[in-house]
Design a binder for these strands. Structure first.
Lengths: 341, 341
DNA sequence: CTGAAAGCGCTTACAG
DNA sequence: CTGAAAGCGCTTACAG
């Protein structure tokens, strides 16, 4: 920078003003500086800038690697956020830290990042206390129970479930089961998506006059297969199954087939939150609601960066998953009698 | 740091020496400094340290987001590297940059990272020129053709293919097809894994006296389904299919089933590089060779960090994928005549 | 074993 | 519109 200033015959302050567009510079000096910069191949040093300006232009995504698997959806959130950050000239680091906030506090102390995007938010999340205590700007992908003043974006679970139930109901299904998450698993204690989906379903199913059956299920294909067995045994009147976890959804389909039940002829299966790549893996191809992963990753980074730049805050956004018809849902089988009450 | 030094009655230099373990410090002063640090809740500022020491302790993983999808395997590489980095007190940023090296050069100019881990390496990779020209330390996950002096780790394709062919051959299969990558796709021009797998297969199959049939295929389930159709039509004598891409492998299985062919009774299908989560999605569960993703991610970061710390270099490592028997491979069907020559 | 001081390469009041 | 200078919070020769 000193070299550039010298060559252009100005002070380094002026070069800095031009670079940051922080004070007006005459067209003439601008031209001289710019020429000097290209001649010298100058690039501004990000570390020195960070130290002087107290802004590193690095943001972190905190991910609970121990508690949650890093699956396709997570990858979408992350790469979506990384691309949004890059567009705004920020860098995104991945912090695999525990849900208790201890490691997070440790890392924040280093002063390396300007802010944090929090993923896999719990209804009452210790990491948020850490962020608030340390005065770190942050944005949530997900929601806590108490959202006062928090920047957040999330899936619109109400609309998503509403859309799913409506679609299934309008096809004529009246005996549904929701295969939800297993909230008894300590790794998912108070895990927002599971709680919210289940609550939304209970309310909406009741509105449609449907009997509410909810089965908990782990987040793996194997867990899905097991639940398929129990479901057929315990709720044989079922004609349509809504599945929250994408891996479980595939397990349900293959579990049913192994039990000799045709999908969708005997059981329609609808995945509530899935990525297209996973849906394509299913046979028959899954009818699903597409997780807005790239969009939420983008918005989460965007919300944080707006806050960092003191721009107009991004209003909280709830994005519904949208329906992608496949071949795993059809009209209910006619050949079985409705359940007697 | 000044506060700590003051409180402990020493100079800031001494605090720094202790912190970095760069010069010996008496037990007494050490104790005083450490007490002062805990009392003040001191944490060393990473940015100032980076500027003064010219080492940021940040490494980047360059990922060609435009050319390659960020799938399960990629996620494993990345999270594996992130965890290894964290253990060594480094941070990992994701740089979604193009394969041509232009964006990479731009980012390197900022001086934010100490080095780069390169993923999805091409046999002749322009990004390596950029790294060398800028004098940036780097490590490869993958290999170029010319490897002179480059730190790298990669899948051991030779051993992997060897193991696969041996397993299939010993079960009695004599009519194999390799479903490889589509090197005509410009996004995968000179893409190492595809080239190496295909070369290894041609050599090894010949050693076993097998006729060599290789079919190119895209990296999606749909592409796999289409290839299944062509395969049955063009090579009906086939009894075993080796598939390179994990998504294509699932497509082949479901494609065969749709054509009315049983897996594994009529066609055995073996996935050459797959993650367990994907294998579990298949029906029947896939017999596969497990991509050493977490391990390679770890080793890639490790190799780079060793180089950065001037430690003994990590010798180049080739890790084979190991066989995980599932239910998609069995002995060849007896009911069809061997191909007449 | 410890300290005084220069310097890393920028930004930013402050002054003109 | 431009500049001189302090300072961001550390590390690291150099000296003792």
């Amino acid at each position: 920078m000193r070299d550039v200033a010298e060559r252009a015959g100005v002070s380094i302050a002026t070069v800095s003003f031009l670079l940051n567009d922080t004070k007006p510079v005459t067209a003439a000096t601008r031209a001289r500086i710019e020429q000097a910069m290209t001649e010298l191949g100058y690039r501004r040093n990000a570390v020195a800038r960070a130290l002087a300006s107290r802004r590193t232009h690095i943001i972190a995504m905190a991910y609970p690697a121990m508690e949650h698997r890093f699956g396709m959806s997570t990858a979408e959130f992350f790469t979506g956020a990384a691309e949004a950050a890059r567009k705004e000239a920020y860098h995104l680091v991945l912090w695999p830290v525990g849900n208790d906030g201890v490691e997070l506090r440790e890392l924040l102390g280093q002063g390396l990042v300007d802010g944090v995007v929090l993923m896999e938010v719990q209804l009452d999340d210790p990491r948020i206390d850490v962020l608030e205590q340390t005065g770190t700007p942050f944005a949530l992908i997900g929601r806590t129970t108490d959202l006062e003043g928090l920047s957040h974006v999330d899936i619109d679970f109400d609309t998503t479930v509403q859309e799913a139930v409506e679609y299934i109901h309008q096809l004529g299904h009246r005996e549904l089961v929701l295969v939800s998450g297993d909230l008894a698993d300590p790794r998912f204690d108070g895990y927002g998506p599971w709680v919210r989906t289940e609550n939304a379903y209970r309310r909406i199913a009741a509105e449609y006059g449907l009997r509410v059956v909810v089965m908990p299920c782990g987040d793996t294909t194997h867990a899905g297969r097991e639940v398929a067995e129990r479901l057929v045994a315990e709720h044989p009147e079922t004609t349509a199954i809504l599945v929250l976890n994408e891996y479980a959804a595939l397990g349900i389909v293959s579990g049913l087939r192994h039990l000799g039940h045709a999908v969708p002829e005997e059981f329609s299966v609808l995945a509530l939150l899935m990525v297209p790549e996973t849906a394509a893996l299913s046979d028959p191809e899954m009818t699903f609601l597409r997780t807005p992963g790239p969009e939420l990753g983008h918005l989460g980074a965007e919300a944080l960066i707006r806050r960092l730049e003191n721009a107009d805050p991004l209003p909280p956004q709830l994005i519904p998953a949208d329906l992608r018809p496949g071949a795993s849902v059809t009209t209910p089988r006619p050949n079985r009698k409705p359940r007697r009450t």
